[in-house]
Structures are given as structure tokens and as C-alpha cells.
Design a binder for these strands. Structure first.
Lengths: 326, 326
DNA sequence: CTGAAAGCGCTTACAG
DNA sequence: CTGAAAGCGCTTACAG
């Protein structure tokens, strides 16, 4: 040591006004030279806060999730919080392990980000008495707050965009694992048809897996229809990617023969050929909002937080007016 | 409690053979019913292990990084380790904060994943006495082990592929922040030219930022050359995405007028139009390997770990034979 | 402004 | 097979 007790050291390192200025400086200098670093574990044992949050995702390799986590981490860092990242993979056993892990780590809060999270999962987490913020997920528990994209409105806009372009046979290519998000995007699609007096044809609805693979496969029967669609609204950009490949492989041109709309506006979407018309989700910002919601709850805000983020339709080159020749 | 001391509880919960079978069961049942969960902080205070690793990335929204982190997390989870995720953003202040955070948290090991990490950063981390594994990064410290893609060989293969297609004016579109990776990929490119007796033209080398934006801008002067390249080898797939858009915007066709090769084989690359010829990096697996290296070091392996992963050239539709008409 | 004491919730020798 | 004791490294009233 350097002439004082560890009590004083503890105070000095946290810049307590209870310690004489010069003592603080001396201690900090010595601590710095010695490379001393207070143990977070010991501290959290007494403060009863871990300064840690848990983030669960279904798949960190999904670019949408990556954008969201980036926003979460940025805000957490600004407030001195560390983030535990856990990939649930939507597997029940992993979900259970993640929940237990978060409990043992005594995380101060949890953010669940996923396009498809097991239905029993959030109840599992909400059992612990810790605030939970859901990002683009259902809200089945009273412990959960949420940040959600305005799926219905955004999908309505996207579908209307196609209707205004004179398309009459518009397909919906959903995500069979998308649960709530898929249901809402589908609802927006239906609403748009209805509002504009277009008939709904169940043959024009197909389901992929939210990834290019599944969408590519789901697109095939749509194109094989006697009266194929002249436009397709996809659950997300990744699905659009698969749909577009299927369309090309049939020798059809986008957007001349068929228009495609996505959802998310991934960073790459503007670089596709043709550039993808899509609904922008401000992923990074949504991540930040989720983290800020948690911060507000930590600070004692008791009212429910249910933030609805508007989606913005970005019109690019994958959509064009319907032409008779089709 | 339920009739025993906390010592016994502690032992029972960890399934110690020192405790009578039925006592173990009774305690576990009660603990389960009460929702008891041992505090990781208290435990790690005495065991002197946190069962935690720190993962630093420059940008979690980068799809390459997402793939790697996915592999890391998967393996960590299998071994009961939790992962702290920190985004350094290549900003020096954040790097310092991350290092301090990891020290305070007493992480058992660190993995640094990044295409471009600050040069002073790893020394900063290696100052703490904790094993470090670098993924696709320099190896400037004796505390660091590494998992790296075989950049030179893979780039040589990629460039040779273009040479075999009869291309003679092949550009290299690098990443000015890519440091080591960029230098090695460039070296492979140079080696291929040399081996095949092709002249090197410095005018055919341009630098982007490893993202579509920078590559798109860097591609422009290349195409404006009196003798433009007929093929371009890009630092990574994201750069290829930008290069391709620039090429199209000049009214040139891929691969008829110009061939494009990327590096990474992101999930989306096979869905591009045209599908991208690229070098596959097994991102997920590399992440797993990095984590396994750490695990081996924990287990006492003292030999240096420097794993070189071969890249695999995946030929798709963005490359074609050179034709006179160009 | 500083010190002595208690305690956060565990694990692990040491006894028995 | 179980208990009593010590201790991990901090923070924070409580005194002075």
C-alpha cells in the first residue's frame, strides 16, 4: 500500500469528495502505476448491481440483429454497462441455459432481440425480477417493455406502393417462424388490398423461413401459378434476396416482369442489382432505444414503455409500374 | 433453509460426491422450488475464475464479424462460459475503455476479432495477464495466439483464377484500414502476377474502406483509366458489392465486360446478381477455433497456437473469360 | 478527511 | 457425510 487503508483507497478511486484532493491524486497515481483494477465481482457483491445487461438474440449472424446489437452495445458502453451476448438459436435448451446464466450473473436488465423467439421463453426470463425489453417481439409478460417497428403501417405503405404502381396480383412471401412480426406484416398487406378494393387471393401467399433459402423455395410455386403475381412483398430483405434469385432463374426480369419489395433495409440492400425497394427499420437506433428504455427503468421510471418506431418506405429499382405486356 | 448449513448446500448444488445422495436431491429440489440461483460474482471471488470471456470486435454489424461471433458464442456456451461483447469501433478511447472493462470483469480470456484494429490495442490488452486469441489480425505480442485465414495463398488462387481466364489487366481493390489482411491479400495478388509473368501496374491498385461505399468510390478512377482493368480482385465481399455497383453505373456488364472476385463468401454473396465468385472464409468455424484455442490454453496447453485456415475459392457467375471485344 | 468494522454470497480446506 | 471457520476483494455506514 501507500500509507492509507483500503477504505480510503476505495473512496479515492471513485473520486469521493470525502477524501483530500491530494490524497486522491496520490492514490490514483499509485494505483495506475501498479496497474490496479478494482474487481467488478467484489464490487457488485456489495452494491448489488452488476452493471451488466444480458442480450439474447436468435442469431447474431443475422444482419438485422447485428445492427440492433451494435446500437445496444454503443449505448450500454456510454453508460458504463457491459453486455453479455447470448445466442439462443431458438432452441429451447439453449434458451433455458441462457436464462439461468443471466440469473447467476445477476444482470441488471435483459434485452431480447429476435425475429423468432420461443413462445415460452420470455415468461422464463420474466420470472426473474429484472426488467426486460423486447425488440420486435410479442409482449406476453408484465415485466416486459418493448420497442417495435410499426409493422402494420409500414407493410400497408409497402403494399400500397405496389398497388399505386397498378399491380393487381400482389403476393405476400412471409416467414413461417416470424410469429408476431409476420402476422402484422401480413395484416398490413391484407389491409392495403382491402382499402384499395383488391380481391385477396390465398394462392398468392407463401411462406419461407426469413432467409434466402426458404424464400427462394417458397417463391417457386408462386411463379408456377396459372396467373402468377406481378409483384411480391417479402417479409424481409433476406427473403427478398432469395425470391429475386428464384425469379431470375425463371428467366424473369426485375422489375420489368415482376416487382419486389423487402423489409429491413439492410446495409447491402441498396447495393443489390437491382437496388431493393424496401421498408427501412432503423436497426441501430432501435437498439439504442431498447437500451435507453432499460436505463430509464433503472432510473425509476415506472410507466410502461412501449415504443413504436415508424418504418420508412425506400423506393429503389426493384419496383416498377405494372405493364400489360406482363 | 432446509436443515443443513450453506456449506452443504453449496456442495449439494455442485453435485459433490461428499454429500449423501438423498440430501443432494432434497436440497436441489428445494433450491429449484425456491428459484435459488447461486451468485456468479460471489463464486468467482473465491474460485478466481469468472467463467467469462471478452470478445472485442470493431463492428458487430459487419456480417463477417457476426459469423465469427456466432461460432465463438456457440463454443463458449457449450463449455459454460459467458461472453462479454464489446465493440471497439476502432476508436482509441473505446479501446481503452474495453480493455479496462475486461480487466475489472476479470475475464478468463480475450478474443479480438476485427479487420482493422488499432495498432496499440493488442499491447494494451496483453498487458493484463490473460490469454488472448487474435482472429485475422497481427500478432504483435507474446501473449497472443491466433487464428488466421491463409490470405496469401487464397489471394493467389483468386488472382490466378482470373489469369487462367486470360485476364491481363487485373486490378486490386484493397482496404486502407485492413492492415495485415490487406497487405497479405495484396501480396498474394502480386505473387500471382509474378508467377504468371504478368506485369504489375500500380495504376491498377486502389483503396477503399472495406465497405461498399469506399469501394464504390475507389472503383471509379480505375474504370476511368485509358486502359481500364478487365477484372478486379476485391479485399472483401462488401467491397465487391460497392465495386459492382460502380461498374454497373458505368454501363458495364459483369462478367461480360469485367470480372469481379471478392473475399469472405458472406451468406448473401451467392444470392447476388450475378452470384459472386469469392474466397470462402469459414467464419463460424474460425470463431469456434478461436474459442477452442482459448479452451486449450485454459487447460494448460503451453505451446503457441497459430492456426492457419485455408480459404477456398468459390467460382460463381461474376467471373468469365476475357474476350477481345472488351 | 480517514480508519476500523461489518458484510455482500459464495467455496473450500480443516475437523470431526 | 456434515459443520464451523476463514477468506475472496470490495463498499459503506459508523466513529472519530
Amino acid at each position: 500500500m501507500a500509507g492509507v487503508t483500503h477504505s480510503t483507497v476505495s473512496r479515492a478511486l471513485r473520486n469521493s469528495p470525502l477524501v483530500r484532493r491530494e490524497t486522491v491524486e496520490r492514490i490514483q497515481r499509485i494505483a495506475h502505476e501498479a496497474g490496479y483494477r478494482a474487481s467488478a465481482a467484489a464490487r457488485s457483491l456489495v452494491t448489488r448491481r452488476s452493471d451488466t445487461i444480458g442480450v439474447v438474440v436468435t442469431n447474431i449472424a443475422d444482419p438485422f440483429v447485428g445492427g440492433v446489437v451494435s446500437g445496444i452495445e454503443e449505448t450500454a458502453d456510454q453508460h458504463g454497462l457491459s453486455v453479455f451476448l447470448a445466442n439462443s438459436n431458438a432452441e429451447p435448451e439453449r434458451e433455458v441455459r441462457v436464462a439461468r446464466m443471466f440469473e447467476e450473473r445477476r444482470v441488471d436488465g435483459i434485452i431480447v432481440t429476435a425475429s423468432r423467439v420461443g413462445a415460452q421463453y420470455v415468461p422464463l426470463l420474466s420470472h426473474m425480477q429484472v426488467p426486460i425489453v423486447l425488440l420486435n417481439n410479442q409482449h406476453p409478460s408484465q415485466f416486459a417493455h418493448s420497442v417495435m417497428i410499426a409493422n402494420v403501417q409500414a407493410s400497408l405503405d409497402a403494399t400500397r406502393h405496389l398497388i399505386v404502381l397498378a399491380h393487381r396480383r400482389i403476393a405476400y412471401l412471409g416467414d413461417r417462424y416470424g410469429y408476431q412480426s409476420d402476422a402484422e406484416r401480413y395484416a398490413g398487406y391484407r389491409q392495403a388490398l382491402e382499402t384499395h378494393g383488391l380481391p385477396f387471393d390465398p394462392l398468392l401467399v407463401a411462406y419461407g423461413d426469413g432467409k434466402p433459402e426458404g424464400a427462394e423455395a417458397a417463391m417457386a410455386p408462386l411463379l408456377a401459378l396459372p396467373q402468377p403475381p406481378t409483384a411480391v412483398f417479402c417479409y424481409n430483405d433476406l427473403s427478398a434476396l432469395g425470391a429475386m434469385r428464384q425469379i431470375r432463374s425463371r428467366g424473369l426480369r426485375i422489375p420489368v416482369d415482376i416487382s419486389v419489395v423487402g423489409f429491413d433495409d439492410l446495409h447491402i440492400s441498396q447495393y443489390l442489382n437491382p437496388a431493393l425497394t424496401t421498408v427501412r427499420q432503423p436497426m441501430r437506433q432501435m437498439g439504442r432505444m431498447a437500451m435507453e428504455t432499460l436505463l430509464q427503468i433503472f432510473a425509476g421510471a415506472e410507466s410502461g414503455h412501449d415504443i413504436k418506431v415508424p418504418g420508412e418506405l425506400i423506393v429503389r429499382q426493384s419496383t416498377a409500374p405494372y405493364k400489360e405486356s406482363q
